[in-house]
Design a protein around this nucleic acid. Sequence first.
DNA 1: TATGAATGAGAATTCATTCAT
DNA 2: CATGAATGAATTCTCATTCAT
Lengths: 213, 213, 213, 213
Amino acid sequence: MTPGEPKFRRRKEARPGEIVAAALQVFAERGFAAARLDDIAARAGVSKGALYLYFETKEDLFRAVVRDAVAPNLDAAAAVIGAGAEDFAGCVRALAGRLSALLAAGPFAAVAKMVVGESRNFPDLARIWHDQLAGRALALLTGLVAHGQARGEVRAGDPRFYAFSLAGPLVMGALWREVFIPVGAAPLDLQALAAQHVETVLEGLLASRGAHV
Amino acid sequence: MTPGEPKFRRRKEARPGEIVAAALQVFAERGFAAARLDDIAARAGVSKGALYLYFETKEDLFRAVVRDAVAPNLDAAAAVIGAGAEDFAGCVRALAGRLSALLAAGPFAAVAKMVVGESRNFPDLARIWHDQLAGRALALLTGLVAHGQARGEVRAGDPRFYAFSLAGPLVMGALWREVFIPVGAAPLDLQALAAQHVETVLEGLLASRGAHV
Amino acid sequence: MTPGEPKFRRRKEARPGEIVAAALQVFAERGFAAARLDDIAARAGVSKGALYLYFETKEDLFRAVVRDAVAPNLDAAAAVIGAGAEDFAGCVRALAGRLSALLAAGPFAAVAKMVVGESRNFPDLARIWHDQLAGRALALLTGLVAHGQARGEVRAGDPRFYAFSLAGPLVMGALWREVFIPVGAAPLDLQALAAQHVETVLEGLLASRGAHV
Amino acid sequence: MTPGEPKFRRRKEARPGEIVAAALQVFAERGFAAARLDDIAARAGVSKGALYLYFETKEDLFRAVVRDAVAPNLDAAAAVIGAGAEDFAGCVRALAGRLSALLAAGPFAAVAKMVVGESRNFPDLARIWHDQLAGRALALLTGLVAHGQARGEVRAGDPRFYAFSLAGPLVMGALWREVFIPVGAAPLDLQALAAQHVETVLEGLLASRGAHV
DNA sequence: TATGAATGAGAATTCATTCAT
DNA sequence: CATGAATGAATTCTCATTCAT
């Protein structure tokens, strides 16, 4: 539109990323079916036809969005795994900090919302999300707990359930923000929630216990 | 067939309910936009036109589905509130049992998935869901915690965060089942998860604490 | 348009035929790819969407057009076969008369043009056309010739080639009319052509031969 | 690669011809509308943009293809005309041989198929085809017959119809090959067909006649 | 000349909604 | 009340054409 700007920006390399970024916004706002390719193209600053230079179909673009959201977070998760040399409590505290930072900052929660909403229509995406991210993270936590149990640091019990006890409030908090804040719910500080939750789940809610500390 | 003897005459009062039930299934499977009124009508055993005798638009039907899922659970929640005369731990244990039973049995989790997926397209539904159900339940829990703190039963801390600590694993578990079980994830026993989680969050994960008990 | 006419003509039985007839016109004029569903719908007096109540896709409609053109002519061909009790020359004369009448009257030539033009894009249609019509007719002629040879009525030679000698001028004439008359070529009386051709091919062009008769 | 040594430098004069040759293939396979310029460019080994250096539009390219197929055959036809000094039967035999050779070898039949299929969309091409080729050839044959009649070599009758009797089987044979052989029809030897047909049409099919020879 | 990324008008297809019956 | 044929606006996707490089 601006006369100074070139009509054809010759940058094939940058385009897919720009399009995926625009698509993420629109898909997160509208969901897959209600998102219009027109809107995505407009937000990416390209024509509708240009989308098809980089992605075969709307579904293909959707997959790219989810995959692009998965990949970087895989690295983050791996980094946390690598740092797992500490004792159980320390490890859990570190994890909670990083995870809540991730959830609060990135498009992570938005993509999760999409995956939840479209899991039946795109089972392979749900599978990717599970196999690459959610399932892997849960397995990591489960292993951490089991390891702690083996070392006598953690009390007996189903370690997978403990993983839900550890992660659930953060997941719920992230979705809560995504879903209810836009319609007027009270703000929610994910990192503060994470910090308090970790101590809670480690030490217990009951005061009688806390008194012993 | 015989005019005089309407053996299987469908009572018109039942129709809306049948349609809402059919719509719940289809909406839960496909999401709002991808759900076809043809399918809903077919599953309800009525003609497509008949839908419009009871609901103005597709959106109207969707709202009815969500509202119908909210209403009965409001009563259930109220019942739990009424039973809140016990001590904090007992009250939490009772709540967890009932809530996990609700989540495991009803269409609750499926509707939650829809609300999550369509929260941006139907902000008023997200608002209803929040104001009538999720927010109310969270406030109930928050109040319970605050009451426990006032009585010295619960340690210090942000009671709203504690509410997330209490409810999050159940919410995450319910969505997990809804999203990942259909694509091959390991089964998840929500009630067992609830039972263990309650003890965990009350007593703490750490073995050193448990020893004091 | 006329106020007296009902907006919704409730005649599910008649519609497919009307649509196929309209489609035949448009496909014959434009070819498959260049034909617009809008035009077909308009010519059939229905909305674009109505097309999809009766035909899955544009291809499906095209196939229906070709098939509908084949079926009735099969009966006509069968009738000619059934009348094969006479001597060779009489049989050929009868065939030529009926065939030229068919070609001159029906949508036969127009459909043939379509099949020719789209044979690579719709090989199955070319196959149907061959197996049900063209190949069958050629085989009929070939058999007729062979029978005549066996009875000593027809001179030696490849009977299939003779079949081309018999039918070719009619086929060429039909396509000629279809292709060149619209662009200003001189008119062509197919039936007169058929009548003269039959005598020609039976008796020979050469005058010296004719003198012997 | 080395600027000084253009080993495989494509001569620009050859380009249009290469493009037309590629376009002929694609148009013959797909028809005009279904042919994609991408495919033509790829088959010609040039970029899509390069097409527009030589041809204004897709239609323009299509016209070039048809015209290029017409031109050389005009010369061949003229040569046959020039050789018309012989008697009628000899002239016809010579024509049949050359014509069948042309049809069997070149892209003639494929282009004819295109012209048939697109005659309504490109009436000027049908006109060119008629005025330059088909009509001219038919007129040549008609004149030949009339000449033969004037010399008492050919029996009475409409000479134009006789031209169809002479050419029709070859035309039908050529289209038959083009349309039905690709879908599994029995092979067809055009030259043998031509050879037998000429004798047939000259002498007559009937054995009683042949006996007089 | 030559390229190929980008455009955008155009076409097929879908589906919520209407309405004559 | 109930039906389901019909509608047509909306959306995805294609591809001839352009133009900065």
